[in-house]
């Protein structure tokens, strides 16, 4: 068994264009996903929009540079995540395929040493 982080990547512009109906359905779908995979889902959450992000980098002199915004600018940004437990990558991918992501997709990464 190993743990995997499933990152949900969304195109925020598409969410901005939603009248709320996709969002509402999406919440229901996430509930259904968690209920359908009780033994696999170990945690998860929805992130607030990328405009709320703050990035911190070490300045190399023992201090920090704090800036407004996400770490790397991309069209799709991380909007939520799950930690799942699975026997192997095939099982993890089978679960990750069920994660609702109507405005993008998901990325799956193993946690080192099984988390």
């Amino acid at each position: 068994m190993g743990k995997y982080l499933v990152m949900i990547y969304d195109d925020e512009a598409k969410w901005a264009a939603d009248d709320g109906s996709v969002m509402e359905q999406n919440h229901k779908n996430h509930q259904a996903f968690v209920e359908a995979n009780p033994s696999a889902v170990r945690g998860g959450g929805q992130l607030d929009g990328s405009t709320t992000a703050t990035s911190i980098r070490a300045d190399g002199n023992g201090g920090y540079v704090v800036t407004d915004g996400v770490f790397a600018e991309t069209k799709e940004v991380m909007g939520g995540y799950y930690i799942i437990e699975a026997a192997d990558l095939d099982e993890a991918l089978a679960i990750a395929k069920q994660v609702p992501s109507p405005m993008g997709g998901v990325e799956v990464r193993p946690l080192v040493n099984g988390g």
């Binding site: 026997a87 192997d88 990558l89 095939d90 993890a92 089978a94 193993p110």
Partner: peptide, 13 residues
């Protein structure tokens, strides 16, 4: 490292 299994894929895949 990612746990790609050494086996025959399940029927659906």
């Amino acid at each position: 490292r990612t746990g790609i299994p050494y086996r025959i894929p399940r029927l659906t895949d």
